[in-house]
Simulated scan of single mutants.
Amino acid sequence: MRNIKISLACLLLIISICFIFTGCGNQNEQTAQNTDSYLTITDAADRVVTLNKKPERILPLSASFLEPLHAVDGKIIARVSAKTGIPDEDKDLPEVGNVYNINLEKVIEQQPDLVIAYKGMNDKFVSTFEDNNIPVIVLDMRTYEQVQHTVDILGQITGNTDKAQKLINDMDSKIAAIKAKIPQENKRIAILHSTSQNVTVQLENSIAGSVAKILGFTNIADGITPLESNPTAAPYSLETLVEKNPEIIFVTSMGKMETIKEAMLKNVENNPAWQTLPAVQTNKVYFLPQEMFLLSPGIHYPEAVETMAKLAYPDKFN
């Protein structure tokens, strides 16, 4: 009898131990599932962002993100207001303000599971989205390298990396074809940015500066210390312009073209030194289209490259 009781006690102990280990196993398995994530990336603001699931309600805060998102089958639920750059399929989407003046309440009302912010324009809103448990990724699309990187990231987000790589390859091929048409020479160029208030020079990390770099042009502003308020621009100096002696001057602008040209006349053209510049004497001062060089051309970067190439070498393009 005593042996039977001992056997039953041992059996109960073994069963109890099994339940304990089984329970621990289930708990550990559940913890692993809860910590699984869909994607972890480092964005353009050096933030490590983890997405727990594939985003199905994406809200981009710049029109520049719309076309690349469509190219990788991103599901867009709302957009910013813009005069240009809105695909037909997005024109009826709810609007959440313009890129410089986002309406946070409207963004939150849309209940996005991912907000894509434009670096340098939407950074101040990031903490608000995070406080409302809305994942946000900051991306940049000024230079061509940044556009390539953004397309790659969007492909990872939507799970369509093959489509992203195809888009990047297509852009690379178009740009290579454009470069093949022009001479491989170090043409000296200057890029001025004119507003109704002042004139600055554009650096390599600006949109126009990136295009000029792709074409192999020598930007006379290379090495100049950028403005504290704008890392893509530097102070304008007519003396430096005369010293560097550019063969071509490109002008980017913000505002009405008539006002911009009037400001240019007041700030630079009335100065006798301006008339000594070879670019001025040979009528090689070109205003670049705002739709390509004010805001990012995005996946239309090859068109921006072709635009600048045609201005510099009109005889090479039919």
Rank of each mutant, 00 (worst) to 15 (best):
25 G>S: 07
170 D>G: 13
151 V>F: 05
77 I>S: 09
55 P>S: 08
313 Y>F: 15
174 K>F: 12
174 K>M: 14
297 P>H: 00
87 P>Y: 02
275 Q>P: 09
228 E>S: 11
169 N>G: 14
72 V>Y: 06
84 T>R: 05
179 K>P: 04
286 Y>K: 07
170 D>M: 05
63 A>S: 13
74 G>Q: 11
197 Q>N: 11
126 V>N: 12
76 I>S: 08
118 Y>H: 08
104 L>Q: 15
252 T>C: 09
16 S>H: 01
317 F>L: 03
86 I>R: 07
6 I>E: 06
306 E>P: 05
56 E>C: 07
18 C>K: 00
53 K>A: 15
106 K>C: 03
295 L>I: 07
64 S>V: 15
119 K>R: 13
159 G>Y: 07
216 G>H: 12
219 N>W: 10
129 F>N: 06
224 I>R: 12
316 K>D: 08
240 T>H: 15
238 L>G: 07
154 L>D: 09
163 K>E: 15
212 A>Y: 03
44 A>C: 02
226 P>R: 12
51 L>P: 06
129 F>Y: 15
164 A>P: 13
9 A>W: 01
240 T>S: 13
9 A>E: 01
10 C>F: 15
243 E>A: 15
22 T>M: 12
222 D>R: 15
75 K>D: 14
18 C>I: 14
135 P>F: 03
123 D>Y: 00
104 L>K: 13
141 M>D: 05
259 T>Q: 13
209 G>A: 05
174 K>H: 11
191 I>H: 03
10 C>R: 09
221 A>Q: 05
259 T>W: 03
177 A>E: 13
26 N>K: 07
68 P>G: 08
265 L>T: 14
271 N>E: 06
